[in-house]
Amino acid sequence: MNINYEKKDKLLIVEITEEIDHHAVEKIRRKVDDGITRYMPRKTIFDFSRVTFMDSAGIGMIIGRYKMMKLIGGSLEIVNISSTVKRILEMSGINKIIPLEGKKEVV
């Protein structure tokens, strides 16, 4: 995974490159939480363009980061989601609170 902070727009951009399961979320969670507490971003953007697999562990991880961003007055967005990942997110109702963008270029 790659994490970048864009100072100008106060954006924390998290590009996830691994399959998201219970094993992977421990590391993702730790790194993203580090980034959020260090930079206090206005918005955290998860770029899912390289995510080929996600199970329910991903739902918990996303909701946890959403709550954290809300706590510091920021927001969370997920971009470039594949149709299989989207099905899981919709099943959980996450799409009602977190914007799921289709294709979007993240620099």
């Binding site: 979320v25 199970d55 329910s56 739902i59 918990g60 909701i63 946890g64 899981i88 099943m91 959980s92």
Partner: peptide, 14 residues
């Protein structure tokens, strides 16, 4: 507390 979503069996079933 472990950020589990409680969606495991629901996903298996669907």
């Amino acid at each position: 507390n472990l950020e589990r979503s409680g969606m495991g069996f629901t996903i298996m079933e669907s």
